[in-house]
Design a binder for these strands. Sequence first.
RNA 1: GCCCGAGUGGCGGAAUAGGUAGACGCAACGGACUUAAAAUCCGUUGGAGGACAACCUCCGUGCCGGUUCGAGUCCGGCCUUGGGCACCA
Length: 867
Amino acid sequence: MDEQYLPGKVATNAQEYWEKHRTFRAVTDPKREKFYCLSMFPYPSGKLHMGHVRNYTIGDVIARYQRMQGKNVLQPMGWDAFGLPAENAAMANNVPPAQWTYANIDEMKKQLKALGFAIDWDRELATCKPEYYKWNQWLFLRMLERGIAYKQTGVVNWDPVDQTVLANEQVIDGRGWRTGSLIEKREIPMYYLAITRYADQLLDDLEKLPEWPERVRAMQANWIGKSYGVRFAFPYQLNGKEEKLWVFTTRADTIMGVTFCAVAAEHPLATHAAKNNPALAAFVDECKRGSVMEADIATIEKKGMPAGIHVMHPLTGEPVPVWVGNYVLMGYGEGAVMAVPAHDERDFHFAKMYQLPIKQVIAVSGESFSTDAWQEWYAEKERGRCINSGKYDDLDYAGAVEAIAVDLKRKNLGEKQVMWRLRDWGISRQRYWGCPIPIIHCDRCGDVPVPDRDLPVVLPEDCVPDGSGNPLNKRADFVATRCPECGQPARRETDTMDTFVDSSWYYARYCCPDNGKAMVDEQVKYWMPVDQYIGGIEHAILHLLYSRFWWKVMRDVGLVQGDEPFARLLTQGMVLNDIFFRKPANGRVVYFNPADVEIKCDEKGNRTGAILKRDGQPVEFAGIGTMSKSKNNGVDPQSLIEQYGADTARLFIMFASPPEMTLEWSDEAVAGANRFLRRLWRMVAEHVRGGLPARKEWPDLPPDLLELRRLTHLTLQKVTDDMGRRRTFNTAIAAVMELTNALGKLKDNSEPAKRVRHEALEISVQVLSPIVPHISHVLWFALGNKQAVVDSGWPRLDTVVLKQDSLEMVVQVNGKLRGRVSVPVQAGEERVKEIALANEAVSRHVGGKAVKKVIVVPGKLVNIVVA
RNA sequence: GCCCGAGUGGCGGAAUAGGUAGACGCAACGGACUUAAAAUCCGUUGGAGGACAACCUCCGUGCCGGUUCGAGUCCGGCCUUGGGCACCA
């Protein structure tokens, strides 16, 4: 073997071996226990970024670990290939999105291969290929048949200059990113998927996912947002006809405190009222400007204007004024709310601003109500009792809701209802680079689904978008078709599907990526569910919820079995780096890449400042943040691999922090990871040079060697647990480092010492091999093995060597550490107490005071409580 | 604004079920080797105080309060910070 560790040579050696032996090809084999390890597939944006490297390294370590445990492992890879960035790149470079996307895939595939991931590339797929998205269309048609897919209007961002629908991302401070014009909300017809029909299942089945992080389940449950309340109506007269203004509330107990109602600007009542009221029309227009994002709407200043209309209180019959409010969402609930200023904080402030009456209807004993300022208890429902509420006085929350619901029902004006925060999934996008929605518009027959035999509806790949509208509308060869029902000329739908549709079922397609006859086949029964899914925490809600929904639909269509697609989930943290910038006196902020910045420290290592290497002038530190183009703080994985090799990159990423936490970049720590690999290499090289030991029965070992063997197996035990159960790879690596540190101190070169060292090195190489597979591959052969480490299985734990006669226990006096004692393993509690009290340091601190209590935690600690 | 996390030395982090705070690594400092540099190896390294010394004492896990023999860990209230909020993926 080489004296020096040459990462490039080592990587080539290992990767060629895997390629030649087709090591990572996954074969469907029901006789073997399978393990499906899946990382979220990347959007082919151009180059791999550090987030990808982290994601796929975590997945690869788990896949390789499971493989060594003897499982039949599937780890596939593909491309989430439709999306907005391709259209933006197309506009910038005048290149069709397809061409840009395929070039990016080639580049990123090369990078993934350089990192040595144990991927079965035979199963590669890309969502922009008709063989794939045909089945998006096919299942969409099944959903139409079942009424799960339906058509309805929805609100979008409209750029009046470009005459284009914009994504939220393309709206900056209420203006279109290219034109700078003020954005308007606009209602257009769209296709929706009725995910709310599955709301109950999506919520209840979270209990079937014990191996998901608690926080993801909590976020999903809150997102689905089941609430119990009352849906009821305020009647009113319109053009001589009886109409009803419907609202939903979880606080029906406060209904007697309603002093006004508020409706969204898009609500029909607002539209009607604005007709003969120019001031209101102007206000409605104002509300319709701005973004559709909920975060914006929730933080804007609450504004309103009276609609000049009154509705009737359903219980008292009193007139209630209707206001138009910019904070009421048309897309949520009824687009109208009842307002109870006394018991809802938002209504309270709104009422104060517009001098609307505030009527207290809930009292809590011991608290006094005042309209001067809001107090927390006003909104409390647990301790409250109704007052000023006529027949409902003195009822508690549950009693009042019940009684009021009964009365509303009797008047046919409402009833108790379950309400979901979750909204149906609008999938129509007025964009080119996506999966066409398989619908044909016929003047005679209406919206006609494309028959199965005509699938897929193929997207032309040679369009170049120009920023105004959807280029598909200008493609007569795409749009012009015939109605499948009447045969007359008709138009194709030009909207495409949300890219979340593509990523909602790709995991199932990996089981049979080449099947041209069906969406999935019986192989999904073997491979699904995914045993381990790994991806960014930023996908905790949308992607995972849509996937769970889509899978349930596939189940109900009879394609798959089981209720959930992902058994275990690991959400990795983001990759962060320092952010440096300069802000010229009257210019835009300029960001500098940390690689170009030198940090100044004082003699204690505290940061004192930073300068740009190029000009030696100071730059400002803006803290740490996720690696991004806009902050110019990314690290290119490619240059990292070129400098240190794939194993160093992988080792650093797995060592720097546990997978669920954020990872802060550090060039110095990367160099440290490389140093460890070089040391490991040298250790093996020296050991091999000294001659490999003969393999015999274990001889009786002297105490120091026995101790080292014990450490070897303690390390194996810990690493196995850390990698398999805890998934804390950083502590697994630390444990191996401790072992190699101890090994470095062993200067003995006797035959027994060689045997102990050999075993320790073999186990180190084997357990590190999922993390640093290339160097492990070469070192394993160097240690005299005939079979590749990837096929060597997991090392066996020697439980005999772990047995000890005595152990160390910690002794505390009043909870403070005062001494350590050695105790025989079989010693009982009384004996342990005796030994602890006999300790010199302990008795000094007890100091003759009366011992009140002694607590013994077996095998760990003794706490002596004195007066 | 709402939902969900996180906060421990100069830095990344460890402490797995309420039981030794700071494993492992980085940086820094001191030393060895070398003509020199790189590489490598050895040692020190939370703060304050005390002892010639082996060592000893006190303080310390964002802030305030609580439960407990014992709290980084549990509970209540804050502060700061990260992710998500439905058309970025």
